[in-house]
Amino acid sequence: MDIRQLQYLVALDELRHFGEAANRCHVTQPALSMRLRQLEDELGLTLVRRGHRFVGFTEEGERILAWARAVLAAHDGLHAEASVCRGQLVGTLRVGMVPLAGFEPIPLLQAFAAEHADVRFDLKSLSSEQILAGLDTNRLDVGFAYADGRHERKYQLFEVAETTMGLLFNRHRWRFGRPALDWMDLESLPLGILSKGMHFRQSVDHALQSAGVALKPLVETDSVEFLVQSVSAGLCCAVMPLGSGLEHRDEALELLPIADSHTLAPLCLATRRGDPVSALAEAFQQFVRERVSPDQG
């Protein structure tokens, strides 16, 4: 068994396709398949369910995958730790980010990259639940997610912003004539909203219910991009975070604050409490703590 076999296994899990996994790993598909069969022979287990194409992993394969990710995280952490001992940071920081928040993490990544030229970033747009699960399974090193005291047993949390909400709309179709709205103003509007399961959607639903406003959304989507396009076209309005900058994507867009609106939990930088925690994750967490005040959100 060697580290490359584990990398092939994890790549296959992430891409769910033999050819694409082979391309990522810079080997031919037959070579990747052969090395995975050698791993199965060594372990005495069938890990991959095969047909004419990739089908999935066996139950045993899923259990081995969890160990493979842990070993790879430890392997990467070892190299990162060695680079720290040499006075430099090297490696890839795997970052999960919620798609809607009143805080923009990219400038932080840009500043971190300016100080550490050998650091690369693997960015994923995920729900808060997916981000926390990614930390649990070593798929992510850090995450910007909505989290609160309920999560502190498992994760180190640093609040970066409290997210408040506004109504994003096309000013050529709607005009409100005042600087702020309340939830009752939304009752007569066609509303676009993220799909259920996202924390931001849960916060909007909770606020509407608390205000006694019952809405049947015109548009539901799991894509922020589709939602903004729908608003730009005048198809609907949408509740969006203040400070997200979404209103600057189109000169026709405007974002008005909604009174008494905030997400159920603040946006936090989250990392694992238990080992392994990479040197990169620790360095980035310290970097954020030194540069971000939650009051700015």
Rank of each mutant, 00 (worst) to 15 (best):
D2E: 15
R4G: 11
Y8S: 02
L9V: 06
L12G: 01
R16A: 12
F18D: 01
F18N: 00
A22H: 10
A22N: 11
N23Q: 14
N23F: 08
A31S: 13
A31W: 05
R37A: 13
Q38H: 09
E42G: 14
E42D: 13
G44I: 06
L45P: 00
L47G: 02
V48D: 03
H52C: 03
G56S: 05
G56H: 06
T58E: 09
R63W: 06
A66P: 04
L72Q: 03
A73M: 11
L78N: 07
S83E: 13
V90A: 03
R94D: 00
V95A: 06
G96D: 00
M97S: 13
F103K: 02
P105Y: 01
F112G: 04
A113G: 12
A113F: 07
A114W: 03
E115T: 09
E115C: 11
H116D: 01
H116E: 02
A117Q: 15
A117P: 03
D118F: 07
D118P: 02
D118H: 11
V119W: 04
R120I: 03
D122Q: 11
L123V: 14
S128A: 08
Q130R: 15
L132K: 11
N138C: 15
R139P: 01
D141W: 04
Y146P: 08
H151Q: 14
K154V: 00
K154E: 12
Q156N: 09
L157Y: 01
F158W: 11
V160E: 00
A161K: 00
A161R: 02
E162I: 05
G166C: 09
L167D: 04
L168M: 13
R175A: 13
R175Q: 15
F176V: 10
R178M: 11
R178K: 15
A180V: 14
D182A: 11
D182K: 09
W183R: 06
D185S: 10
L186W: 08
P190E: 09
P190V: 06
I193N: 05
S195A: 15
M198Q: 11
R201K: 12
S203E: 01
V204H: 00
Q209E: 15
V213Q: 04
A214G: 05
L215V: 15
L218K: 12
L218I: 02
V219K: 05
V219S: 01
D222Y: 03
V224R: 14
E225W: 04
F226G: 03
L227I: 06
L227Q: 03
V228W: 00
Q229R: 12
V231G: 01
L235R: 13
L235I: 10
A238H: 06
P241Y: 05
S244P: 07
G245V: 10
R249H: 10
L256I: 05
I258D: 03
I258R: 07
H262Q: 15
A265Q: 14
A265C: 10
A270E: 02
A270G: 08
R273C: 08
R273G: 02
R273T: 02
G274V: 10
D275N: 09
P276I: 00
V277K: 07
A279K: 12
L280V: 06
E282I: 03
E282S: 12
V288I: 14
R289F: 06
R291L: 12
R291F: 09
S293Y: 01
G297K: 08
